[in-house]
Write a protein that binds this DNA or RNA. Structure first.
Length: 293
DNA sequence: TTGTGTTTTATTGCCTCC
DNA sequence: GGAGGCAATAAAACACAA
């Protein structure tokens, strides 16, 4: 048995103590609320409701002698605090949830309770408050998770949309390349060719993608031009030229909408090979395997 | 009325601080 | 080493549906 467990004026081991200890401490007419008390509510209050205690007991108000007799026969019973007492303690708890010794003594006097009971009440109240806080934290986290999940699902939808858009554009470019191979070598574009190229360039909107901070980044060792800071990566096939400096190169490039690759704008509609050749594993099943969010 | 789940009061053991 | 806090737990009191 701990020293603290002994504070109720009786034997606290296993709810023991019995009425003998209580009776020996009971002082009829005493002005001290704590004299002889070992249960939740001072027994002195039951004997003399007008004593120094701020509150009377529930039983005293409600039932009178029957309950009083029961108390003497079963003084070990646990008693709940009165509503007024709880409200008083709640207000005190709102002021400060820690209990200094002086405040504990004062509250005990005001409420006609044992200082130990005040300490226990604050301890249990802090535990309840902590649980409430945990519940609130959980709700906040849950809400945050739901928001992230919704964002993620929206990004997946956007990804699929962009994916189909790129495939559609690739088809158009391949078709364009095929038509070019079968037509004469004239440098003049047919109206349909010009329209197709215009559509491609409209869809590949450099500003939209480059300024979108939420755009996915390419991974798996594939770096964009801006990450690499080295234009040679994208011009390896044209290095024989050697006449272009970087400023000239930048003016002739565009950023791919999906991965942020910086690719050369190629005149005469011949960039299907260049465009597609810069995507790793370009086929319909794997061409987007380097995406990550 | 009774069985059951929840809340409240209280104890115990361990830990930290002074 | 004592005082006090906390987590885990017991047990009484309470709420409520069947």
């Amino acid at each position: 048995m701990s020293a603290r467990g002994f504070l109720y004026g009786g034997d606290s081991s296993g709810g023991g103590g019995g009425s003998s200890g209580f009776n020996s401490l009971f002082v009829p007419g005493s002005s001290h609320s704590f004299a002889g008390s070992r249960s939740m509510v001072s027994f002195e209050d039951k004997r003399n409701g007008s004593s120094g205690s701020f509150f009377r007991t529930v039983d005293q108000e409600d039932n009178g002698d029957d309950e009083y007799d029961e108390y003497f026969q079963h003084p070990e019973k646990k008693r709940r605090l009165k509503v007024d007492q709880v409200q008083f303690l709640e207000k005190s708890f709102e002021t400060d949830n820690k209990l200094e010794p002086d405040r504990k003594i004062q509250l005990a006097k005001d409420l006609g309770l044992q200082p130990r009971q005040i300490a226990i009440w604050f301890q249990n109240r802090r535990a309840r408050w902590k649980n409430k806080q945990l519940e609130k934290d959980y709700d906040v986290l849950q809400e945050s998770y739901n928001e992230l999940k919704a964002n993620y699902e929206n990004l997946l939808l956007e990804k699929e949309k962009l994916k189909s858009q790129v495939l559609d554009l690739s088809d158009k470019l391949l078709l364009q390349e095929t038509e070019k191979g079968t037509s004469d070598s004239s440098s003049t574009k047919s109206p349909s060719e010009a329209l197709q190229q215009e559509q491609v360039m409209d869809c590949v909107n450099v500003q939209d993608v480059a300024s979108d901070s939420s755009s996915p980044k390419c991974v798996d060792g594939v770096q964009s031009f801006s990450e690499r800071g080295d234009s040679s990566y994208l011009f390896e096939q044209d290095q024989s030229d050697g006449s272009l400096d970087e400023e000239d190169n930048l003016e002739k490039m565009f950023v791919t909408p999906l991965s942020g690759y910086l690719l050369p704008k190629i005149e005469n509609c011949d960039y299907p090979e260049h465009y597609l050749g810069l995507f790793p594993n370009h086929d319909q099943d794997q061409s987007f395997g380097f995406w990550s969010y």
